[in-house]
Design a protein around this nucleic acid. Structure first.
Lengths: 201, 201
DNA sequence: TGTTTTTCATACCGCTCGATATAGTGATTC
DNA sequence: GAATCACTATATCGAGCGGTATGAAAAACA
């Protein structure tokens, strides 16, 4: 967050980071379109003009919330790639997602999935943004799985991209189910089942 | 569809089934909230009063569209349960979903997933409806996998419900990815990868 | 033919949406 | 202490939302 300090003039009376965190929670539960400015400003504890002065507009606010989401809630994705085996990578990815869903104070589901599924005409730019961000993180996983294959860590007949899409599909399905009421224990057994099928070892 | 023929009065100038099919396509691409009455009536080729006279309101229209969707696009789910093996059931479920996504004239993604992911306050009843319908179809798959386990068709350590959630997660992930631009060939390889991991045989 | 019944077309309802204009308030700098 | 600047509060903007009132048009009854 750019905590730019403009020394002149009246200082801001609210904490921009806290307000952004509150906005993130609203977007997370409602989606981009489902989150109204009224609900956003009430959750953030600020008025509409303050929101526009500080964050630009609704779309800019969403993108900043998305930044926060990625750095705070999706950080495990990068570290997961450091696991020694492909199976370890998959396990860290899925268990990381599981752990996120287990948090009792965060909304259920995945902001990325929520924001990329359906939308009216106005939110298609948002959807495109989210899809583009997902593509870049997907590429990192594909590369990691390709390396694993080269290291003999994956069977020869496995396609790294297909395997990545498979893991992402599980991740997305997990998010959908979590958002629709499936409890964490059931989700954990689902992940266990998936990992038990992992090829080789 | 109830093609109730009320002989009295001016006859309807549009085909209710065609109109409902058009409405389904709009809901399918936009989601419940993203589909406005303007877009719906334009796609259906009727006026607002005609829509309300024939279908009730937006929510009732959605539920009828959901009925149509289930009977037309999700029929393969019931027949999939008749496959001789659990693996065959899973394969039919996933390939059926794949085939749906391959249709060039239908919208991408799954209406059930789209409608159950995120929503504003007004659409939570819709979300609950969709979640309830999914629960009933899930139960059928759980029962089928339990039978498979009793028949020695699945390893003893497999939990039927967890396996069902796993298959549904793949299905939902497939829908999410299809809705965000992943091509059918890639989705096909993803399904192949998943089926290659299926336990036993 | 005249009445009844239902549908269609237009225009409109109150409401909420995202976004701002206008003032007034308050802290910092010169 | 005065000038300056950014923030707050209120009130409102035009547009679009879901939903409807009002008649005219068209077919089936009598």
């Amino acid at each position: 967050m750019d905590t730019a300090v403009a020394t002149r003039g009246r200082p801001r009376e609210f904490d921009a980071d806290e307000a952004l965190a509150a906005a993130l929670r609203v977007f997370w539960t409602r989606g981009y379109e489902g989150a109204s400015l009224t609900e956003l400003t009430e959750a953030m504890g600020i008025t509409r003009p303050s929101l526009y002065a500080c964050f630009g507009n609704k779309e800019a606010l969403f993108k900043k919330a998305l930044d926060l989401y990625e750095t705070e809630k999706l950080a495990y994705m990068e570290t997961a790639l450091e696991a020694p085996t492909a199976r370890g990578v998959a396990e860290r990815l899925l268990r990381g997602a599981l752990q996120n869903q287990a948090s009792t104070c965060d909304p259920k589901g995945c902001l990325g999935v929520i924001s990329s599924v359906a939308c009216g005409p106005e939110a298609e730019a948002i959807k495109a943004e989210v899809v583009a961000r997902r593509a870049s993180s997907k590429r990192a996983v594909v590369d990691r799985f390709a390396r694993a294959k080269a290291e003999g860590d994956l069977p020869e007949h496995i396609d790294p991209e297909a395997l990545t899409n498979y893991v992402f599909a599980l991740f997305q399905g997990l998010s959908v189910q979590s958002g629709t009421g499936t409890c964490c224990e059931d989700l954990g057994r689902m992940v266990d089942t998936a990992l038990a099928m992992w090829p080789g070892r």
